[in-house]
Structures are given as C-alpha cells and as structure tokens.
Design a protein around this nucleic acid. Structure first.
Lengths: 99, 99
DNA sequence: AAAACATTTCGTAATTTTGCGAAACATAAA
DNA sequence: TTTATGTTTCGCAAAATTACGAAATGTTTT
C-alpha cells in the first residue's frame, strides 16, 4: 500500500537548525556570542550591523526560539548568551550531516 | 566618521550555505546524493517526499544555483550529483563556524 | 509523424520572512 | 514622580519562499 511519504523528523531538525543560521544578522549574533566567548546586549550588537533595533530584536527572538541562545535579564539590560548545550547538539547534527 | 556597517562577506556566505539546507526537501536531496554516494534523477526522488514534481524541480534548481549539486543530462533523464568540490568547501565553512 | 517519457517552466496563490518606525514596557536614576 | 535608558512589541508593508497544476520542452521509441 502506497502511503503518503512525510519528511523525516531528522530532515526537519536539520532544516530548522540551518534556518536559524540562514540570515547574516543571525550568523553575526551567533558568531559574536560563541566566537568571542562573551555575553552581550542588543545595544552592543546594533552598531555592527545594518538593521534597525526592532529588527535585531526580532532576530534575537528567533534565535531564542530556536534554542541556540538565551537571554539573561540584568536590568535595565538583557545579556544574550549562547546556549552551550543546544549549540553543541546543533553542531553535532550539522557536522554529521555534512560528513 | 561613523560609516554605515554592512554584513561581512563571510557572514553572508555562511547564511547562503545555511539557507540551502533550510528546507527538509533540500536536506533530503543532499543527503540522498551525498550519503548514498549516488547520482539520482528527480523521478527517483519524488516517491520519497510529500511535494509535487514541479516543487521538487524548484528545490533542485535552488541547490544547483547554490553550487552544492549539479545536473548531468542523460536523455531523457537528468542525473543529479553532489558537487564534491563545493560540498567540501561548504562543509569546512560550516564546521569552522560551528566550532 | 505520433506517442511516450522525464523533467522543467509558467502563472498564480498562500504563507513566511524581513524590515521599519512608533509606541509600549520595565527598571534605574534624579 | 519625572526623566533617562535599554529593549521589545505592535502595526504594517514589501519581498521572498513554498506550493500546485497545466502547459511546454526535449528526447526516444514506435
């Protein structure tokens, strides 16, 4: 019996991770938070990229939703950091896929 | 003088590669062509995924445009293969980014 | 020349993404 | 309590993505 095929959960997971990395602003954010080993406020990021504050905020929200970053509130600022656990998982999944 | 920042070429390159991987149909195609070490026609792929032939064709076109795959015409079929050179480059760039 | 085959292109629609400025929110300082 | 600071949410618009079926393309077989 020919059942209707679906995308596999694995393919969807890889696609979701890739999507998080699919915009230069998000690549910049992730690189800054991961590469420089620091947490960082949106105010410290906005000077480096050609988008409005509200747009940056949207990208941060998306990355938070993806689980790759997290935001720690330190009034009146919000310090964004890499979520090390999920970053490691994403790294393994992508590296394995690109083998 | 405060000049308007731009996204860097590197950030844009990473984003472009990630975008190619950001849809489950394209993940499936790349996995099939790379993982199974074979070339493959669109007719051989269509049975495995829940999209129309014309939509699959669009995704193939996008992957061709990204440089990650290539299509060799063998009338009346078209055999799609991984572009090993570009795949290797993409792999290095992504792995380095995810370090 | 007609029919069959494999695939793409076209036209179009629905949805998602990206972007901005204005307004709102929350906290701290004056 | 007003003002200042840092950031997000809202409302909206423009652009890009995803999707489909129908028609077109190019090739081989009959």
């Amino acid at each position: 019996m020919a059942t209707k095929p679906k995308f596999t959960a694995q393919h969807e997971q890889i696609a979701r991770i890739a999507k998080a990395l699919s915009h230069p602003a998000r690549v910049y954010i992730l690189e800054k938070l991961n590469g420089l080993q620091t947490c960082c406020t949106s105010g410290e990021m906005i000077g480096d990229i050609p988008i409005a504050r509200s747009t940056l905020s949207q990208h941060l929200k998306e990355l938070k939703y993806s689980g790759l970053i997290q935001g720690d509130i330190e009034p009146p600022k919000i310090k964004y950091c890499i979520n090390r656990k999920n970053w490691k998982i994403a790294k393994m999944i992508l590296n394995d896929f690109m083998k």
